[in-house]
Nucleic acid binder design. Structure first.
Length: 738
DNA sequence: AAGATAGTCGTTTTT
DNA sequence: CGACTATCTT
């Protein structure tokens, strides 16, 4: 106890108030870098050490697995003994745990399986087909989006508001069929986990009472990210006994698109008028300059709860801004900068490279590889989303649950064993007609001669394979079962045949699954190891599996960067249409959320922040020109140091694509953006600048639209009239200025 | 039935 | 550009 008292004494005044509060409901509004996680973990330790909560009576909810792991780690440092029995996890993870424990009360099969969004999308497509609704106008992804949106709001198919719109009626019809199929095959999607967990409380008073008895303290991190169901679930759980602490920051609400409701912060004060409010506004993370920039940007949003971060620290270095010719130039600049940081002795792990969308990572990676800078990507194509990993897991899922249709469809013919589209279609029809899973349909068809010779044999062999794996699993460790599945399924031979680099990587990844499974051979909270492993695979992206040892820089989206901090931060791609992203630009709420995302990005930096944008960017196969992001302009000029000064220019930025030289226009007006300064690439070639008209002996006349490289390696992109866009090395191309 | 090839299409963020 | 589909050839 004395230990924690001493530690708490080191916190600042409002932090201590939050940690020690004995209010029944506590709302902590915590700005970026104000010690939010620290307050949360200290409070948990405080509550336990002071006897206000038993370890197993403490429930802490986070949004990401990373955050949950981090919290556990920090608690281990604070508590004399490891936090045994505490409930720490994501909303989804905790919902899953509850449903596994109370599957009967939740009206689920004991071996229900969790679907990820890819499984879900396939299922939606299948239903659209089966209902005979396949139509170019019906976008399966929109349907998926719709279903998830309804579930986020806690609305089951039958309660979807009736609408006269033809589309809404269709959506509702598909949702109904989807719900029925999931129930029939024991499949649960992400939204369903939360919805069921909520219904578990509502429909089973004894179960609810049990947990209300068990939990004395519930704590929620990143509360601004809770959606309607999560909030409802919390409210029911807390009843009029359990104490609730929530921590959040309305300025960091970046998941509105996924149903998150910032309003929950106000809602909780309405629902519980006695809620104690503590604000944490002192920032301990960033320099004065970085903080000022962040404040200036977020100040452009209206409807904020109001909060101004301040720091007692130094102003620090100015923010760097690099205006790149194109995305390759941008990547090169960033990689060069990182290299010199490393040369100066910065740890790679103190450097982060952030971007708006995953698609941006490839070019950046290439530049890093070129300079042999070790990096690690979070997110992107996640480990458990890789094709070979999913295939392997599908075999295991079938072992765990024969009714797992998603897994069945995925691997019944992978590797190819002669069960083609026709056979599968027949199986689907039987399954639909008798309302069974695909597996049961096959069993039925085999008994009744519903499948013809070749396909019948192949399907029977497949069933036998799964059954044998199941039997074998009885007396071997999980990792051995994985190994056996790789061999017996034929996946190993399948990828062996490809024999290329890719195939080798695939086999390595399958081996990685074997390794990962070893962690689940013991200590699985009462679940059978296979079950525990599979649900973890669905609920956790598997980021933790990547090589943790090497000191490497971090690459990730701005979204995944939330909650983290780095000494050096690079934010790439600050261009209109990319950041803010074009998909969120047509509404003021969308734009405000992009701005909060920018705020999140800026506040990740402790000492140095480098922003960059590219004047032209190759995206979706064609060259695009975008203006610098409005967020750049929102940062006070005096805080920014332009690496390549922006001058008035003769060119303008077209807002859309342009493919030929015709659409490249010169104009006097508009935005200030550099290009005639010629920066690194063109400065030695005095007569050339972006926008220069040139003549090539072969291609004729054209306009220079971008340039990159240095010294002898300057490359220019020229839009030739009639010949299209070409990239030329300046030292070889015989270009003549007109 | 399976593989190869051509052609189309849509492109954010994540548990 | 690349993931997915439709169509072809074997």
């Amino acid at each position: 106890m004395s230990d924690i008292v001493q530690r708490v004494a080191k916190l600042n005044e409002p932090q201590q108030q939050a940690v020690k509060s004995d209010a029944r409901h506590l709302l902590v509004l915590a700005g970026a870098g104000s010690g939010k996680t620290s307050v949360l973990t200290h409070r948990m330790a405080w509550l336990i050490e002071s006897g206000q909560a038993a370890p197993h009576g403490t429930l802490a909810v986070t949004f990401t697995n990373k955050a949950a792991r981090e919290m556990r780690l920090r608690l281990e440092e604070l508590l004399p003994s490891s936090p045994h029995g505490m409930w720490i996890g994501t909303f989804h993870g905790i919902a899953h745990r509850l449903l596994k424990a109370h599957w009967r009360a939740a009206k689920l099969p004991e071996n229900f399986q969790v679907m990820d969004s890819d499984d879900q999308h396939r299922l939606v497509k299948r239903i659209i087909n089966e209902l005979g609704l396949k139509d170019d106008l019906l976008d399966s992804r929109k349907v998926q989006w719709f279903i998830n949106g309804q579930k986020d709001e806690g609305i089951r198919a039958q309660f979807v508001t009736n609408s006269y719109s033809q589309q809404d009626k269709l959506f509702k019809q598909i949702y109904m069929a989807y719900e029925a199929l999931c129930q029939r095959t024991g499949m649960v999607d992400f939204g369903e986990l939360l919805l069921r967990a909520h219904e578990l409380w509502l429909n089973n008073p004894p179960v609810l009472a049990f947990y209300q008895q068990q939990f004395q303290q519930v704590l929620v991190d990143e509360f601004q990210d809770t959606n309607s169901v999560q909030y409802a679930w919390l409210r029911v759980l807390c009843g009029d006994q359990v104490k609730l602490t929530v921590v959040g920051d309305d300025d960091q609400s970046i998941y509105g698109w996924r149903g998150a409701k910032v309003e929950n912060i106000q809602q909780i004060q309405q629902d519980y008028p006695d809620t104690e409010l503590v604000r944490l506004e002192q920032n301990y993370r960033s320099t004065g300059t970085i903080l000022e920039a962040a404040n200036a940007v977020i100040d452009n949003n209206t409807d904020r709860l109001g909060k101004e971060l301040w720091t007692a620290g130094d102003k620090g270095d100015p923010i760097k801004l690099y205006a790149a010719f194109n995305e390759i130039d941008e990547a090169r600049y960033i990689a060069d900068s990182i290299e010199s940081l490393l040369d100066q002795g910065t740890n790679a792990s103190d450097i982060a490279l952030l971007y708006r969308s995953n698609a941006q990572s490839r070019v950046l990676e290439e530049a890093l590889i070129h300079l042999q800078i070790p990096y690690r990507i979070y997110g992107g194509v996640r480990f458990y989303e890789r094709q070979e990993v999913r295939n392997l897991l599908s075999y295991l899922r079938l072992v765990a649950s024969r009714n797992d249709d998603a897994a069945f469809e995925r691997v019944v013919n992978v590797p190819a064993r002669g069960i083609g589209a026709k056979s599968l279609e027949n199986i689907r029809i039987v399954a639909r007609d008798q309302g069974s899973s695909l597996w049961d349909a096959v069993t039925f068809m085999l008994q009744n001669g519903g499948l013809k010779g070749k396909a019948a044999g192949a399907v029977a062999a497949f069933q036998l394979l799964i059954n044998e794996l199941d039997e074998a699993s009885e007396d071997m460790e999980l990792s051995e079962l994985c190994k056996l599945a790789i061999e017996a399924s034929g996946l190993e031979a399948h990828y062996d045949k490809e024999g290329k680099e890719k195939a080798i990587a695939r086999k390595e990844n399958m081996q990685e699954v074997v390794n990962a499974s070893k962690n689940y051979e013991t200590n699985t909270e009462g679940l059978p190891p296979l079950m525990a492993f599979l649900s973890e695979a669905s609920l956790d992206a598997g980021d933790a599996q990547a090589d943790v040892d090497e000191d490497s820089i971090h690459l990730m989206t701005l979204h995944s960067a939330k909650g983290l901090e780095f000494i050096q931060v690079f934010m790439a791609g600050l261009e209109e249409n990319l950041f803010p992203h074009r998909m969120s630009m047509d509404s003021s709420t969308g734009l405000a959320e992009e701005r909060r995302l920018c705020y999140v990005g800026i506040t990740r930096a402790r000492e140095n922040l480098t922003l960059s944008y590219a004047e032209t960017r190759r995206l979706f196969g064609s060259e695009t020109r975008n203006r610098p992001s409005r967020f750049i302009q929102e940062i006070p000029e005096e805080l920014v140091d332009s690496v390549r000064p922006t001058l008035k220019t003769t060119s303008t930025f077209a807002s859309g694509n342009y493919g030929s030289s015709n659409s490249y226009r010169s104009s006097k007006g508009g935005f200030s953006a550099r290009n005639s300064d010629m920066g690194n690439a063109l400065s030695e070639h005095e007569s050339l600048s972006l926008g220069s008209r040139v003549r090539h002996p072969m291609f004729g006349e054209g306009v220079i639209v971008s340039a990159s490289g240095q010294g002898a390696n300057v490359a220019v992109t020229v839009a030739f009239e009639g010949e299209g866009v070409k990239e030329l090395m300046l030292q070889y191309a015989k270009l003549e200025v007109i």
